[in-house]
Computed example of a mutant assay.
Amino acid sequence: MPKVKKLGNTPNLMVVVSLTIALFLIGLCGLLTLNARKLAEVVRQNVEVQAYLDNDLSNAKLDSIYKQIAKYPFVLFKDNSAQINFISKDAAAKQFIEDSGEDFHKLLGKNNNPLLNSYSIKIKEEYFSESRLKEIKKSLERIQGIKEVGYVENFVDEVNKNISKIYLILSGFVLLLLVIIIMLVNNTIKLALYSQRFLIRSMQLVGATDSFIRKPFVSKGALQGLISGFIASTLLIVTQQLAVNKVDGLVILQEIDKMVLLILIILMIGVLVGVTSTFRSVDKYLKLSLDDLY
């Protein structure tokens, strides 16, 4: 007995696989964008300004300078604590020798240390620009007891430029990919509906309305989009966890709330593309003449 075709019974695998690949690529671009944003935030929050102090300052004077610095609005606070660290000249000398491999004590003598005590100050992200850092430098140098203020010049502007380029490239790639994906999925669904074109015409001939004919197809398209979204999201999470386990330091870029939002967006895009493409494809066959169906 020949198998009777059911309205809305289109091939699942072909549509789901195509849509899953498409959604995974979109999600991957979104994940890269989130990681780039988080990396930029981490870099900005770790920018430090060094306030070098005069020699032979008393503990009371050091404490006074600390309190004056902490009052400035550009100082980063965490857990109600100003991110200001005192670095003694002995600690600075030890770090210099470890980093450079050169011991200046051999030349100057063990008791001679040309380095200065300093305060290392972390800056809020909104002050992450060359012009604002110059203003910070001038403000700190007005404090009595601070001899000089230093930071890595031009580094800030270079980081900002590179971050902007990354956002622009990824955004352009996502938009291009989205257009290509919509066209690809649209054609895939059209091919999947091809076998149902005569059944659609038969339903029209017996008086079924267009909305009645569309309903099972659109419902199927929404389900296919949802399934594809779940599979793509699972692959994305697995890919992220593999990367985190393989590459040291990537764990600091993870943001659970942003990842959940990305997954919800992928699911929404999956359902939207599935419904829209199915609706357009069914509408095409509803408007075709009998001769065009052949």
Rank of each mutant, 00 (worst) to 15 (best):
K3W: 04
G8T: 01
N9G: 09
L13Q: 04
L13M: 12
L13V: 12
M14K: 07
V15A: 02
F24G: 01
I26V: 13
G27C: 03
G27S: 06
G27M: 03
G27F: 05
G27V: 02
L28P: 00
G30V: 05
T33P: 01
L34V: 11
L39T: 08
L39S: 15
E41L: 09
E41A: 14
Y52C: 04
L53A: 03
D54C: 12
N59G: 13
K61G: 09
L62V: 08
L62P: 14
I65P: 08
Q68E: 14
I69D: 10
I69N: 05
A70G: 05
K71P: 04
P73T: 09
F74H: 05
F74L: 06
L76Y: 11
D79S: 09
D90Q: 13
A91Q: 13
F96P: 02
I97A: 04
S100A: 10
D103W: 03
F104N: 02
L107S: 14
K110W: 07
P114R: 00
L115S: 06
N117D: 15
S118N: 13
Y119D: 05
S120D: 13
S120K: 11
S120W: 02
K122D: 05
K122N: 14
E126R: 14
S129Q: 06
S131W: 00
L133Q: 14
K134N: 14
I136M: 04
I143D: 06
I143L: 04
Q144N: 15
K147R: 12
K147Q: 15
E148F: 07
E148N: 10
Y151V: 01
N154R: 11
N154P: 04
D157N: 15
V159F: 12
N160L: 11
N162G: 04
I166T: 14
G172N: 01
F173S: 15
L176W: 03
I180M: 11
I181M: 13
I181L: 13
I182Y: 10
N187E: 03
Y194N: 03
Q196F: 01
Q196I: 02
R197C: 09
Q204A: 00
T209M: 01
D210K: 14
K215P: 05
S219F: 14
Q224I: 06
I227L: 13
I227R: 05
I227M: 03
S228P: 02
G229M: 00
G229Q: 01
F230W: 08
S233Y: 00
T234D: 02
T239V: 12
A243F: 11
V244I: 13
N245H: 11
L250I: 06
L253F: 06
L253V: 03
I256G: 09
I256Y: 13
I263E: 00
L264D: 08
I269T: 09
L272P: 01
T278R: 05
S281M: 02
D283K: 14
K287T: 09
L293R: 05
